[in-house]
Design a protein around this nucleic acid. Structure first.
Lengths: 238, 238
DNA sequence: CAGCGTCTGTTCGCTAACACACAAAGCCAT
DNA sequence: ATGGCTTTGTGTGTTAGCGAACAGACGCTG
C-alpha cells in the first residue's frame, strides 16, 4: 500500500515487536525508553562496543561501510520494520559498521543488558529476531547482486522507494551528496540520475528536499530487487 | 602460514567443531556421517528445503546467486573453517541460494533434525555458530564493498588466495568460465586478468588446472579485503 | 587418427561511470 | 544586502568492463 501524501499522524509501532504476544511485547517494552533520534545523529562507528539496541517506530537509519579506500556504501536501510544492533541477537557486542539517522523520529531504546534479559525470557522474541536475521542475510546477498549489476538510475529509484516506505511519507530529506555516499557512486552520478527522474516527473527535489510524485513510475524504473526484498520480509515476518 | 606445496596427507578437521569441548564435539559428530563431495555436485538450489547441514573437513564449496537478470555471483566460499546450511542455526529451513562443490573432498553430513538436536543440547556449539554467523554477516558487507570498488584483477587474486587456503594446496581446479560466474564478470575479463597474473609469474594455469606460484606476490595484487576477512574470522573464532 | 567438445586467447565497437574542475543558484547570518 | 556556505548543474577527457563474434589449442573418445 502506498503511503499517504502526508505523514500519518497515527502512532506507529515497530513491526518486529508489534507481532509478538502481548506478554512478550510488554516484557521488552518495559525495559525500553522512548527516544527521539535527530537526523545525522551517529549511533555507532566501526569497532565500537554496542551499548544500546534500537527499535525504530517512526524514524529510519542507514548502515554504511565508512569511506576507506573507497567512497562508502550503504549496506542496509532500517525503519520500523527492523532493529539496530543486530549483533546483540547473536551475543556479539562489537559492531563493524557506521550507523546514522537518515530520517528523524521516535524509537525505542534499551541497553544491551536489558536486551539480553528480554531475549532470554522471551522465546517468541528470540524466534522472531532469528527470522529477521535470516531475512537480513538474504537481503544482503541480494544487495550484492544489485550493486554489482544494476545501473545507478535503477538503484537510485529503488533507494527512493525504500526510503519512502520507511519515512511513511512521500517527502523526505536527503542531498545528492549523501545519496552518493549511500550508493557508492560520485555525487555527479546521482545528480545525473536524479535529474533524469525529475525530468520524467517521477520525483521533485530541491536542495535536499525530495518528493516522490509518481510511485508507480518509480517502480517501473527501479530494478526488481525492490519488490523482491520487500516480498521476502513479508513472507517470513509479515 | 602458507599451505605446503603438496596436499597435506594428515586428516583435516572442521575448525568450527575442532574448537569445541570434547563432549560437545562428540555430541554432534555422533549424529554425523562422513561423506565425499564430488566437484560440481549441487547441494542446494534457491527455494529448496534444507535437508542436511555439512561441515567440510577437506573440501570447499561456493554459494552463488544463480544467474537471473545477470550472470551470477559468488556470495561466499566455504571450506573447513565454515559450514553449509547456516539458516538452520536460525531455525530457518529454506535456503535462497545455490550451493555447489568447488573442490572435492570429505565432509561431515547430518540431517537438519540431527543438527537441531545437537544445537539444543550444546550451548557451546550454539554460541560458536552464532559467532560464525556474525562473522559471515560482516564478511558479506565487506564483499559488497569489494565487489563494488575493486578491479577484476585484484578480486581474482583475492579469490585465488581464498581458494588456496580452503584447498590446503597451491593447486586446484577451476576454469575461467566458472571464475566469471563467481566474480560476476565476463569470461573474457577473467582471461585478461588471469593472463596478466600469469605473465607476472604469480600463477600458472592450463585448461582449468591452476597453480599458485608466488603467494606473496598475489597478496600484493589482491585487495586488502583478503587479509581483512581472514583476520575477522581469526579474531572471533580463531 | 579423426572428430568433437572444452578451454583459452584476441579483436572491435560501445557505454556507464570515473576524475577533475568550475559555474550557478539557493539559503542563512552578520 | 552582502558575503559565505551548501547544494546542484555542466563540461572535458579517460577508462574498466560489456557484448558479440571468432580462432586456435588441447585432450578425450570412438
Amino acid at each position: 500500500m502506498p503511503p499517504d501524501s502526508e505523514k500519518t499522524p497515527a502512532r506507529l509501532e515497530n513491526r518486529l515487536l508489534a507481532a509478538l504476544p502481548t506478554r512478550d511485547r510488554r516484557l521488552i517494552l518495559s525495559r525500553s525508553e522512548p527516544v527521539e533520534l535527530r537526523r545525522g545523529e551517529v549511533i555507532s562507528e566501526p569497532g565500537e562496543r554496542i551499548r544500546n539496541a534500537y527499535f525504530p517506530t517512526d524514524c529510519f537509519l542507514s548502515l554504511v561501510t565508512p569511506p576507506a579506500d573507497h567512497s562508502g556504501l550503504e549496506v542496509r536501510l532500517v525503519g520500523n520494520e527492523g532493529m539496530i544492533g543486530t549483533p546483540l541477537i547473536l551475543g556479539v557486542e562489537i559492531t563493524q559498521i557506521r550507523t546514522f539517522v537518515q530520517g528523524a523520529g521516535p524509537a525505542w531504546r534499551l541497553s544491551s543488558e536489558g536486551f539480553h534479559e528480554a531475549l532470554r525470557q522471551s522465546e517468541a522474541l528470540e524466534a522472531r529476531l532469528h527470522c529477521y536475521l535470516d531475512v537480513l542475510m538474504n537481503q544482503c546477498t541480494q544487495l550484492l547482486a544489485c550493486t554489482r549489476f544494476h545501473l545507478v538510475e535503477a538503484r537510485l529509484a529503488r533507494w527512493l522507494l525504500m526510503s519512502q516506505d520507511r519515512a511513511h511519507s512521500d517527502h523526505f530529506h536527503v542531498t545528492h551528496e549523501i545519496l552518493a555516499l549511500l550508493l557508492g557512486v560520485r555525487r555527479v552520478g546521482v545528480t545525473k540520475a536524479a535529474s533524469a527522474l525529475q525530468a520524467r516527473e517521477l520525483i521533485h527535489y530541491r536542495r535536499g528536499e525530495i518528493t516522490v510524485l509518481n510511485r508507480a513510475g518509480l517502480q517501473g524504473t527501479a530494478c526488481g530487487c525492490y519488490g523482491a526484498a520487500e516480498a521476502l520480509y513479508e513472507q517470513v515476518l509479515g
